[in-house]
Design a protein around this nucleic acid. Structure first.
Lengths: 147, 147
DNA sequence: AGACTAAATAGTAATGGTTATTATTTAGTG
DNA sequence: CACTAAATAATAACCATTACTATTTAGTCT
Protein backbone atom coordinates (compact mmCIF):
# COMPACT_ATOMS: atom_id res chain seq x y z
CA UNK A 1 0.00 0.00 0.00
CA UNK A 2 1.81 3.09 -1.25
CA UNK A 3 1.21 6.40 0.48
CA UNK A 4 0.28 9.36 -1.71
CA UNK A 5 3.77 10.73 -1.26
CA UNK A 6 5.40 7.48 -2.26
CA UNK A 7 3.23 7.45 -5.35
CA UNK A 8 4.23 11.03 -6.12
CA UNK A 9 7.93 10.28 -5.64
CA UNK A 10 7.61 7.32 -7.98
CA UNK A 11 6.10 9.61 -10.59
CA UNK A 12 8.97 12.07 -10.19
CA UNK A 13 11.50 9.28 -10.70
CA UNK A 14 9.61 7.95 -13.69
CA UNK A 15 10.03 11.39 -15.25
CA UNK A 16 13.73 11.67 -14.40
CA UNK A 17 13.16 14.47 -11.92
CA UNK A 18 15.50 14.61 -8.97
CA UNK A 19 14.14 13.96 -5.50
CA UNK A 20 15.31 17.07 -3.70
CA UNK A 21 14.64 18.09 -0.12
CA UNK A 22 12.65 21.02 -1.43
CA UNK A 23 10.39 18.84 -3.55
CA UNK A 24 9.82 16.43 -0.71
CA UNK A 25 8.97 19.27 1.65
CA UNK A 26 6.54 20.69 -0.89
CA UNK A 27 4.82 17.35 -1.32
CA UNK A 28 4.65 16.85 2.44
CA UNK A 29 2.89 20.16 2.77
CA UNK A 30 0.58 19.89 -0.21
CA UNK A 31 -0.57 16.40 0.67
CA UNK A 32 -2.20 17.86 3.76
CA UNK A 33 -4.54 19.78 1.44
CA UNK A 34 -5.85 16.89 -0.58
CA UNK A 35 -9.37 18.19 -0.67
CA UNK A 36 -8.88 21.95 -0.35
CA UNK A 37 -7.62 24.63 -2.67
CA UNK A 38 -4.84 26.81 -1.25
CA UNK A 39 -3.34 29.96 -2.74
CA UNK A 40 0.10 29.30 -4.19
CA UNK A 41 1.31 32.48 -2.55
CA UNK A 42 0.21 31.03 0.81
CA UNK A 43 2.15 27.84 0.08
CA UNK A 44 5.11 30.01 -0.83
CA UNK A 45 4.88 31.96 2.41
CA UNK A 46 4.47 28.82 4.49
CA UNK A 47 7.40 26.99 2.90
CA UNK A 48 9.64 29.98 3.38
CA UNK A 49 8.90 30.16 7.09
CA UNK A 50 9.48 26.43 7.46
CA UNK A 51 12.69 26.52 5.45
CA UNK A 52 14.41 29.86 5.61
CA UNK A 53 16.21 30.47 2.37
CA UNK A 54 13.86 28.56 0.12
CA UNK A 55 13.39 30.59 -3.01
CA UNK A 56 10.11 31.73 -4.56
CA UNK A 57 11.33 30.42 -7.84
CA UNK A 58 11.74 26.92 -6.47
CA UNK A 59 8.21 26.82 -5.12
CA UNK A 60 6.47 28.22 -8.16
CA UNK A 61 8.55 26.19 -10.60
CA UNK A 62 7.95 22.92 -8.81
CA UNK A 63 4.25 23.52 -8.44
CA UNK A 64 4.04 24.00 -12.19
CA UNK A 65 6.07 20.88 -12.82
CA UNK A 66 3.91 18.88 -10.45
CA UNK A 67 0.87 20.12 -12.28
CA UNK A 68 2.12 18.93 -15.66
CA UNK A 69 2.77 15.54 -14.04
CA UNK A 70 -0.83 15.44 -12.85
CA UNK A 71 0.09 15.59 -9.17
CA UNK A 72 -1.65 18.91 -8.64
CA UNK A 73 -4.60 20.82 -9.93
CA UNK A 74 -4.35 24.58 -10.50
CA UNK A 75 -7.20 27.03 -10.61
CA UNK A 76 -7.09 30.72 -11.51
CA UNK A 77 -8.70 33.13 -9.11
CA UNK A 78 -8.77 36.90 -8.99
CA UNK A 79 -5.18 38.03 -8.36
CA UNK A 80 -3.81 34.62 -7.58
CA UNK A 81 -3.65 30.96 -8.44
CA UNK A 82 -4.97 28.21 -6.21
CA UNK A 83 -3.50 24.75 -5.97
CA UNK A 84 -4.92 21.45 -4.78
CA UNK A 85 -3.26 18.11 -4.41
CA UNK A 86 -4.53 15.66 -6.97
CA UNK A 87 -4.83 12.35 -5.20
CA UNK A 88 -6.66 10.78 -8.10
CA UNK A 89 -3.68 9.56 -10.12
CA UNK A 90 -5.97 7.62 -12.40
CA UNK A 91 -7.41 10.88 -13.69
CA UNK A 92 -10.96 9.69 -13.29
CA UNK A 93 -13.29 12.19 -14.79
CA UNK A 94 -15.20 14.20 -12.21
CA UNK A 95 -16.24 17.70 -11.22
CA UNK A 96 -16.11 19.75 -8.03
CA UNK A 97 -18.22 21.32 -5.38
CA UNK A 98 -16.15 23.94 -3.55
CA UNK A 99 -17.16 25.31 -0.16
CA UNK A 100 -16.68 29.06 -0.25
CA UNK A 101 -16.31 29.17 3.53
CA UNK A 102 -13.77 26.46 4.36
CA UNK A 103 -12.53 25.66 0.85
CA UNK A 104 -13.37 21.99 1.08
CA UNK A 105 -13.70 20.24 -2.25
CA UNK A 106 -16.19 17.46 -2.90
CA UNK A 107 -16.00 15.37 -6.04
CA UNK A 108 -19.17 15.05 -8.07
CA UNK A 109 -20.25 12.26 -10.35
CA UNK A 110 -21.94 12.64 -13.72
CA UNK A 111 -20.96 14.83 -16.62
CA UNK A 112 -23.40 16.44 -19.05
CA UNK A 113 -20.83 16.98 -21.79
CA UNK A 114 -22.68 14.86 -24.35
CA UNK A 115 -25.74 17.03 -24.07
CA UNK A 116 -23.70 20.15 -24.75
CA UNK A 117 -21.74 18.52 -27.51
CA UNK A 118 -24.97 18.10 -29.46
CA UNK A 119 -25.40 21.88 -29.33
CA UNK A 120 -22.00 22.53 -30.92
CA UNK A 121 -22.04 21.11 -34.44
CA UNK A 122 -18.75 21.47 -36.28
CA UNK A 123 -16.85 22.49 -33.16
CA UNK A 124 -13.86 20.73 -31.64
CA UNK A 125 -14.23 20.24 -27.91
CA UNK A 126 -10.91 20.05 -26.10
CA UNK A 127 -11.88 20.51 -22.46
CA UNK A 128 -14.43 21.67 -19.97
CA UNK A 129 -14.83 22.70 -16.37
CA UNK A 130 -17.84 22.40 -14.14
CA UNK A 131 -17.78 23.89 -10.69
CA UNK A 132 -20.46 24.36 -8.10
CA UNK A 133 -20.04 26.80 -5.22
CA UNK A 134 -21.67 27.11 -1.84
CA UNK A 135 -21.38 25.98 1.75
CA UNK A 136 -20.58 22.40 2.61
CA UNK A 137 -22.85 20.54 5.03
CA UNK A 138 -20.64 21.36 8.04
CA UNK A 139 -20.47 25.08 7.23
CA UNK A 140 -24.20 25.16 6.50
CA UNK A 141 -24.87 23.78 9.98
CA UNK A 142 -22.48 26.22 11.64
CA UNK A 143 -24.09 29.11 9.86
CA UNK A 144 -27.54 28.02 11.01
CA UNK A 145 -26.35 27.87 14.62
CA UNK A 146 -24.70 31.29 14.55
CA UNK A 147 -27.74 33.10 13.23
CA UNK B 1 -35.80 49.43 -30.29
CA UNK B 2 -33.07 50.35 -27.83
CA UNK B 3 -29.46 49.71 -28.73
CA UNK B 4 -27.35 47.81 -26.22
CA UNK B 5 -25.61 51.04 -25.28
CA UNK B 6 -28.89 52.86 -24.72
CA UNK B 7 -29.96 50.00 -22.51
CA UNK B 8 -26.72 50.21 -20.58
CA UNK B 9 -26.99 53.98 -20.15
CA UNK B 10 -30.53 53.54 -18.84
CA UNK B 11 -29.20 51.08 -16.28
CA UNK B 12 -26.52 53.54 -15.20
CA UNK B 13 -29.15 56.25 -14.72
CA UNK B 14 -31.42 53.92 -12.84
CA UNK B 15 -28.56 53.36 -10.40
CA UNK B 16 -27.74 57.06 -10.04
CA UNK B 17 -24.41 56.72 -11.78
CA UNK B 18 -23.24 59.69 -13.81
CA UNK B 19 -22.97 59.36 -17.56
CA UNK B 20 -19.39 60.46 -18.08
CA UNK B 21 -17.43 60.57 -21.32
CA UNK B 22 -15.16 57.88 -19.93
CA UNK B 23 -18.03 55.52 -19.19
CA UNK B 24 -19.55 56.07 -22.59
CA UNK B 25 -16.24 55.42 -24.29
CA UNK B 26 -15.80 52.24 -22.27
CA UNK B 27 -19.24 51.01 -23.22
CA UNK B 28 -18.65 51.88 -26.86
CA UNK B 29 -15.53 49.78 -26.83
CA UNK B 30 -16.84 46.85 -24.80
CA UNK B 31 -20.01 46.53 -26.85
CA UNK B 32 -17.86 45.53 -29.81
CA UNK B 33 -16.89 42.41 -27.85
CA UNK B 34 -20.35 41.12 -27.08
CA UNK B 35 -19.44 37.52 -27.67
CA UNK B 36 -15.72 37.47 -26.86
CA UNK B 37 -13.70 37.68 -23.70
CA UNK B 38 -10.98 40.34 -23.64
CA UNK B 39 -8.27 40.90 -21.04
CA UNK B 40 -9.04 43.91 -18.86
CA UNK B 41 -5.43 44.98 -19.23
CA UNK B 42 -5.96 45.03 -23.02
CA UNK B 43 -9.04 47.19 -22.59
CA UNK B 44 -6.99 49.45 -20.33
CA UNK B 45 -4.22 49.75 -22.90
CA UNK B 46 -6.65 50.38 -25.73
CA UNK B 47 -8.60 53.05 -23.89
CA UNK B 48 -5.44 54.85 -22.90
CA UNK B 49 -4.25 55.06 -26.49
CA UNK B 50 -7.64 56.30 -27.64
CA UNK B 51 -7.88 58.84 -24.83
CA UNK B 52 -4.50 59.98 -23.63
CA UNK B 53 -4.74 60.76 -19.95
CA UNK B 54 -7.40 58.27 -19.07
CA UNK B 55 -6.42 56.69 -15.80
CA UNK B 56 -6.03 52.98 -15.01
CA UNK B 57 -8.14 53.52 -11.97
CA UNK B 58 -11.06 54.82 -14.00
CA UNK B 59 -11.03 51.81 -16.30
CA UNK B 60 -10.71 49.16 -13.63
CA UNK B 61 -13.19 50.84 -11.32
CA UNK B 62 -15.84 51.23 -13.98
CA UNK B 63 -15.44 47.70 -15.24
CA UNK B 64 -16.08 46.48 -11.71
CA UNK B 65 -19.09 48.73 -11.33
CA UNK B 66 -20.47 47.58 -14.65
CA UNK B 67 -20.08 44.03 -13.51
CA UNK B 68 -22.08 44.55 -10.35
CA UNK B 69 -24.80 46.11 -12.53
CA UNK B 70 -24.84 43.01 -14.68
CA UNK B 71 -23.55 44.79 -17.78
CA UNK B 72 -20.37 42.74 -17.91
CA UNK B 73 -19.15 39.31 -17.07
CA UNK B 74 -15.70 38.81 -15.52
CA UNK B 75 -13.60 35.70 -15.61
CA UNK B 76 -10.33 35.00 -13.81
CA UNK B 77 -7.45 33.72 -15.88
CA UNK B 78 -3.81 33.13 -15.06
CA UNK B 79 -2.26 36.56 -14.37
CA UNK B 80 -5.22 38.57 -15.54
CA UNK B 81 -8.95 39.02 -15.61
CA UNK B 82 -11.05 38.75 -18.74
CA UNK B 83 -14.18 40.74 -19.43
CA UNK B 84 -17.12 40.20 -21.76
CA UNK B 85 -20.05 42.42 -22.49
CA UNK B 86 -23.23 40.93 -21.11
CA UNK B 87 -25.91 41.62 -23.66
CA UNK B 88 -28.41 39.40 -21.93
CA UNK B 89 -29.90 41.93 -19.52
CA UNK B 90 -32.62 39.51 -18.57
CA UNK B 91 -30.01 37.29 -16.91
CA UNK B 92 -31.32 34.21 -18.57
CA UNK B 93 -29.51 31.23 -17.20
CA UNK B 94 -27.03 29.72 -19.60
CA UNK B 95 -23.47 28.44 -19.94
CA UNK B 96 -20.63 29.01 -22.36
CA UNK B 97 -18.56 27.40 -25.02
CA UNK B 98 -15.36 29.41 -25.48
CA UNK B 99 -13.20 29.09 -28.58
CA UNK B 100 -9.60 28.93 -27.46
CA UNK B 101 -8.41 30.19 -30.84
CA UNK B 102 -10.55 33.27 -31.55
CA UNK B 103 -12.15 33.70 -28.13
CA UNK B 104 -15.69 33.55 -29.49
CA UNK B 105 -18.33 32.68 -26.91
CA UNK B 106 -21.38 30.58 -27.69
CA UNK B 107 -24.24 30.33 -25.25
CA UNK B 108 -25.39 26.85 -24.32
CA UNK B 109 -28.80 25.69 -23.20
CA UNK B 110 -29.51 23.19 -20.45
CA UNK B 111 -28.14 23.05 -16.95
CA UNK B 112 -27.49 19.88 -14.96
CA UNK B 113 -27.51 21.60 -11.58
CA UNK B 114 -30.43 19.54 -10.23
CA UNK B 115 -28.53 16.35 -10.82
CA UNK B 116 -25.54 17.62 -8.86
CA UNK B 117 -27.70 19.09 -6.14
CA UNK B 118 -28.93 15.59 -5.33
CA UNK B 119 -25.31 14.62 -4.65
CA UNK B 120 -24.85 17.37 -2.07
CA UNK B 121 -27.22 16.70 0.82
CA UNK B 122 -27.09 19.34 3.55
CA UNK B 123 -25.07 21.75 1.43
CA UNK B 124 -26.06 25.27 0.44
CA UNK B 125 -25.52 25.91 -3.25
CA UNK B 126 -24.89 29.55 -4.06
CA UNK B 127 -23.55 29.43 -7.60
CA UNK B 128 -21.97 27.40 -10.33
CA UNK B 129 -20.00 27.74 -13.52
CA UNK B 130 -19.93 25.45 -16.51
CA UNK B 131 -17.54 26.12 -19.34
CA UNK B 132 -16.60 24.13 -22.38
CA UNK B 133 -13.42 24.85 -24.34
CA UNK B 134 -12.34 24.08 -27.85
CA UNK B 135 -12.39 25.42 -31.39
CA UNK B 136 -15.52 26.97 -32.82
CA UNK B 137 -16.82 25.70 -36.17
CA UNK B 138 -15.01 28.41 -38.12
CA UNK B 139 -11.66 27.80 -36.42
CA UNK B 140 -12.12 24.04 -36.79
CA UNK B 141 -12.54 24.48 -40.54
CA UNK B 142 -9.53 26.79 -40.81
CA UNK B 143 -7.39 24.36 -38.87
CA UNK B 144 -8.43 21.52 -41.19
CA UNK B 145 -7.45 23.58 -44.25
CA UNK B 146 -4.07 24.60 -42.86
CA UNK B 147 -2.97 21.10 -42.07
C1' DA C 1 34.11 6.52 -1.86
C1' DG C 2 35.26 10.28 -5.28
C1' DA C 3 34.49 12.75 -9.51
C1' DC C 4 31.38 14.36 -12.98
C1' DT C 5 27.44 16.74 -15.03
C1' DA C 6 23.09 18.22 -15.86
C1' DA C 7 19.46 19.66 -13.10
C1' DA C 8 17.91 22.28 -9.29
C1' DT C 9 18.26 25.97 -6.04
C1' DA C 10 19.27 30.57 -3.57
C1' DG C 11 19.38 35.17 -3.63
C1' DT C 12 18.08 39.08 -5.69
C1' DA C 13 15.87 42.04 -8.81
C1' DA C 14 12.45 42.92 -12.14
C1' DT C 15 7.78 42.59 -14.23
C1' DG C 16 3.17 43.74 -14.82
C1' DG C 17 -1.62 43.65 -13.64
C1' DT C 18 -4.16 45.88 -10.34
C1' DT C 19 -5.15 49.00 -6.45
C1' DA C 20 -4.49 53.14 -3.36
C1' DT C 21 -4.16 58.07 -2.67
C1' DT C 22 -5.41 62.68 -3.16
C1' DA C 23 -6.02 66.91 -5.51
C1' DT C 24 -8.84 68.38 -9.29
C1' DT C 25 -12.69 68.20 -12.41
C1' DT C 26 -17.38 67.42 -13.74
C1' DA C 27 -22.37 65.62 -14.21
C1' DG C 28 -26.53 66.32 -12.50
C1' DT C 29 -29.60 69.18 -9.72
C1' DG C 30 -32.01 73.17 -7.85
C1' DC D 1 -25.36 79.83 -12.45
C1' DA D 2 -23.92 77.83 -8.32
C1' DC D 3 -23.50 73.77 -5.63
C1' DT D 4 -22.11 69.21 -4.26
C1' DA D 5 -21.30 64.61 -4.38
C1' DA D 6 -19.36 61.62 -7.57
C1' DA D 7 -15.86 60.72 -10.85
C1' DT D 8 -11.37 61.31 -12.71
C1' DA D 9 -6.16 62.15 -13.45
C1' DA D 10 -1.82 61.52 -12.14
C1' DT D 11 0.85 59.62 -9.72
C1' DA D 12 2.89 55.84 -6.66
C1' DA D 13 2.45 51.59 -4.29
C1' DC D 14 1.34 46.68 -3.98
C1' DC D 15 2.09 42.01 -4.48
C1' DA D 16 1.89 37.64 -6.92
C1' DT D 17 4.79 35.84 -10.10
C1' DT D 18 8.85 35.50 -13.11
C1' DA D 19 13.72 36.32 -14.65
C1' DC D 20 18.58 35.98 -13.97
C1' DT D 21 22.82 34.00 -12.66
C1' DA D 22 26.14 32.12 -9.62
C1' DT D 23 26.24 28.22 -6.65
C1' DT D 24 24.84 23.76 -5.00
C1' DT D 25 23.37 19.08 -5.34
C1' DA D 26 21.15 14.46 -6.85
C1' DG D 27 22.03 10.83 -9.51
C1' DT D 28 25.41 8.31 -12.12
C1' DC D 29 29.58 6.32 -13.49
C1' DT D 30 33.93 4.90 -12.33
Amino acid sequence: METPIEQAVAILRRNQLKITKQRQALLDYLVTYQDHYVAISAVDEHMRTLFAGMSHNTIYRNIKEFETLGLLELKAQANQTLVKYQCDFKHQHHHHFVCSNCGKVTELQACPLDEYEAQLPGCTITGHRIEIYGLCAACTTKQAINS
